[in-house]
Structure formats: C-alpha cells, structure tokens
Nucleic acid binder design. Structure first.
Length: 463
RNA sequence: GGCCCCAUCGUCUAGUGGUUAGGACAGCGGGUUUUCAAUCCGUUAAUCAGAGUUCGACUCUCUGUGGGGUCACCA
C-alpha cells in the first residue's frame, strides 16, 4: 500500500488490435474513477509493441470512444515511443546476468507446442533468468495471492533488444511513468507474478495491483464477438443512441456498488462514490435489458432541448422533413416519444413502424376498422363521431390542447354510453388509423382542433 | 490437465456470527386505460454441497462440486 501523501498514478493501457471493447471500457473507467477521486493522475498508454496486429484505425477508435465517454486522460503515450528505454533496461538486465540471450535451435523440437508456429520462431530470444521463488502480492480486490513461479521457467521477455514483449514492456513503462497502482482485468492475474519478478530484477518499486472481475455474456461465457445480439464494441453503443453516462453508469454497476440503494449516477457522482474496496471479486454478466433501463433513466434527466436534439438526430428522412415543416407539432410529440423509447435508435424504429406519421398526416385505414371489436354497426359509430365532433365544436382551440379538459368534455358524453369503447375506439382510429396507438386525447392535444375535425369528418364520410 | 481466482433470487447486488436474508432489472398479478405505451401498487424467486468451529452460521475453517482465468517468440 502507498503512503497517503504519495500521489496516485494509474494507467489504462489498451492495445490497438481491435475495436474498443466494453470490457476494456470498464477497466478504463475504474482506473479513471480511482485516480480522479484521489486527485491522482490517469495515463492513457497505447500498447503498440505488436507491430503486426496494431492498427491506427483501432487506436483512433479507442481515442474517439474514450472522448465520447468523457474519460479524459492527463497524459498520453504510445509504448512504441519508449523503444530506447526498453532497450536500455533489457541490456541492463542482460549485463547483470538477470536475463540472457538464449539460443533456441537445440530446445526447439521438444518445446514447441502444437499451436506455436515454427516458421515464425527465431533462433535466439531474450529470456528472463527466473529466480524460482514464490511471489506474493496483496491484491487490492482479491486479497493476498501467492504463486510459485518455478513452473514458469525462464520465460521470454523479448525477441531481441529492439523487440520487447508485453510483460517486459509493461514493467519498463510503468516504472518509467511511476505508476503506483495497476488496475486491470482478472485475465491478467497470471501475468502479475512474472511482472513482479521483473520489477525486482530491475530494482524498481513494485506497484499495488488490483484485478477487477471480468464481464461475461448471458450464458456466462466470455464476452466475445456478437452473442445474443450483444455487441462488444463500444462504438455500436454510441451508434445506437445510448448515452455515454448511462453506459458508464451501467458498466460501473457490474462489479461495483456504492453500498447504498442508489443506482443512477453521473460520471461526477461515480467519482465521488467510487471505492476500490467495494469492487466485487466475482465476474458479472452483461445484462442488456438493465442497460436499456439505466439509459432510460438518464434520458429522463436530460433537458428538453437535449432530448429534442437527440430525437431529431434519430428521425428517419421522411419524418425529419415532416418535423421540419411542422415543428410546432414535433415539439408537442416529443414527450410522447420519450415515453416509448429506452435508447434513441428506438426513435428510428418508431418512424419505420409508422408510429409517428399520423401526427403529421391524416391516416388511411379501412372503414371496418372503425368498429370497436368489429361488432358495432356503422350507424351507431357515425352517431358517436358526429356527436364528438359537435362537442369539439364548442371547445376552444386552447381547451382542445389540454388533455384533461378535453377528456372531461368528451367523457361527459361517452360515460353515458353502455360501452365507451364504441365511441372512443372509432375516435382514436379516425385520428391514428392504427390498431395500437396513443389515445385520442393525446393525439388531439398534438394536432389541434381543426385537424381533428377534418379527420373526424373523413371517418364520418366513410360510413 | 497444471497453476490461480471465484461462488446470495433468472441477472446486477446488500449483508462482514444472531435479519421475517434487503434493493434494483426482468417475470408475474392488479389499479388506471377503447388499444398500445407510460405510470402506480402488489408479488414469485437466492445463501452450491458436506463436514467442522460455535450456544448460534450466508458470514469463519476444511473438503468436494461448479464456474471462470491462464498456460505464446499476443497484449
């Protein structure tokens, strides 16, 4: 553990070998929260030592996603920028006899496992001289862990002096950057003993380690590619209209809780409440349904302007044009759209399923649809619709826009009927033309008295 | 298989020897509703198993079982 007056330095070190993954996102988040809460430094370091697999495209994706999420770093490095330092330390270890250049030709035949590709193997590599001791560290999350490194053998730390491998490069960089706390996924536990050995060989201060639980798919298998329609790429959550803070909020909640019954947090609130001691030991399942719920809670907290802007962004072309032309109507639909979505791409679905069009344009439908449950005679329906039209006639435009007032006026009539549905169903159908839609009072409050009168008349004419 | 880690409702979790084992999401039921959505109320559901320690174990110990991670000249 560190002194309380020692400044905390953490890093998030993704390798740009794939699109930014939600699992990595949580590692970044926990590092960020831990650092920010204690006024420490959060470093972003791109681990690009694997020249074959690293791509600029992936680095750009990581950076863009992090920016979208609002996880801002205090310092930025690429591991490849530190080649000289890696080389220097590698030479130092070899000079001190703590590592050695190993000729592989003799050992090759027996050592090579089936998955290793013989053609890519070199005739010499740099191996770490394993002191074969028991390494113990007190994990910030898991508690004491001890591993006998004897069976690790003299593991390879570099292909040559210019090509360090992961375990060595990480220790070299973390040392150079004075990283005090290494927070990473539990899939790194098995790397830790090797790294501790390297720290000790370098005579460097060993940082504190905290291995956070992994995130699993619904079938409890590793979160990989597209499973159960769930994507692992952070980018897709942005594309689908999730709010960055909602995603962060949800990710924080799998593997951590504040110890209270609060569940919805802004990034700022997460920083205030976070505690590494309350991080879970066991892995958690990524539950998309709950994510959607969290997202909806965050949507509710947005300002009306923000909500409008976001909805507009996800309108399909056709609806967007209608909304532009009739923005007064659009403004009035917004609260009703909000009721029907959990993520903003739901808005696009609403458009595609025709659940918004009737607000802008009179619907077309079959006359028989006007009959409630198909049992009411046209003559009766006609009577009801004419009556409703008359009631509206006596209401002001303003009264029609007030759902409660309107409902009261119409109910005065429909409540006298044996079945209100006989009148209210055709009323609603004449306005929306759909089997399932918002109620006629809501629609009236959006489209206004005149338009309703017209639609009512069209229905009456159809009967 | 070796090594390491983990284990409370379907899922995320609270709980740190004595609780009717709490909350949230989902589910189910109901209220409100012409319908859908939304909303409100209610409700089903869990301590992996077996020993031990103890007056008393979800909680401590051991064993078993189950799940996961890792065993690269990737990171």
């Amino acid at each position: 553990m560190s002194d309380s007056n020692e400044k905390i330095i953490v890093r998030f070190a993704p390798s740009p070998t794939g699109f930014f993954h939600v699992g990595s996102l949580r590692t970044a988040l926990f590092n960020y929260l831990f650092a920010k809460q204690q006024r420490g430094t959060y470093i972003l370091r791109i681990e690009d030592t694997d020249k074959e697999r690293s791509k600029k495209e992936y680095e750009d994706d990581i950076l863009a996603c992090l920016k979208w999420l609002g996880i801002t770093h205090d310092a930025f490095y690429r591991q490849s920028e530190h080649a000289e330092e890696h080389k220097r330390l590698l030479k130092k270890l070899v000079d001190e006899g703590k590592a050695y250049v190993s000729k592989e030709s003799e050992v090759a035949q027996e050592t090579i496992s089936t998955k290793a590709d013989m053609t890519n193997r070199r005739e010499s590599v740099i191996r770490f001289k394993n002191p074969n001791k028991v390494v113990i560290w007190n994990d910030m999350i898991l508690g004491p862990i001890s591993v006998d490194t004897t069976d690790l053998g003299d593991f390879v730390i570099a292909k040559d002096f210019d090509t360090p491998l992961y375990n060595f490069a990480v220790v070299s960089d973390d040392t150079a950057m004075d990283v005090t706390h290494v927070i990473r996924g539990q899939d790194h536990i098995s790397n830790t003993p090797r790294q501790v050995l390297i720290y000790e060989a370098l005579g460097a201060q060993v940082p504190a380690f905290g291995h956070i639980p992994l995130i699993l798919a619904e079938d409890k298998a590793k979160l990989s590619k597209r499973k159960h329609g769930l994507s692992v790429a952070v980018r897709t959550y942005q594309d689908e209209g999730y709010l960055p803070e909602a995603l962060l909020n949800f990710m924080a909640l799998v593997g951590w809780n504040p110890g209270t019954e609060e569940e919805i947090f802004t990034l700022k609130e997460l920083i205030d409440r976070f505690s590494i001691a309350r991080v879970q030991k066991s892995s958690g399942v990524f539950n998309m349904t709950k994510l959607r719920w969290v997202n909806k809670e965050h949507i509710k907290k947005m300002s009306l302007d923000e909500q409008c802007a976001k909805i507009t962004e996800f309108l399909d072309e056709n609806t967007k044009q209608l909304a532009d032309r009739e923005h007064a109507i659009f403004d009035r639909i917004v609260p009703h759209i909000l009721e029907r979505i959990e993520i903003f791409s739901d808005v696009t679905k609403l458009c595609e399923q025709g659940e918004l069009a009737f607000y802008f344009q009179a619907p077309t439908y079959l006359a028989e649809k006007l009959s409630f449950k198909g049992t009411v005679l046209s003559e009766e329906i006609k009577t009801h619709l004419i009556r409703i039209k008359e009631i509206l006639e006596n209401l002001s435009e303003l009264e029609c826009m007030d759902i409660e007032m309107l409902k009261k006026a119409i109910s005065a009539y429909t409540d006298t009927l044996p079945s209100r549905g006989n009148a209210l169903h055709p009323f609603r159908m004449s306005l929306s033309g759909r089997d399932k839609s918002p109620d006629p009072f809501t629609i009236t409050s959006v489209i206004g008295k005149t338009e309703v009168q017209e639609r009512l008349q069209r229905a009456i004419d159809m009967l």
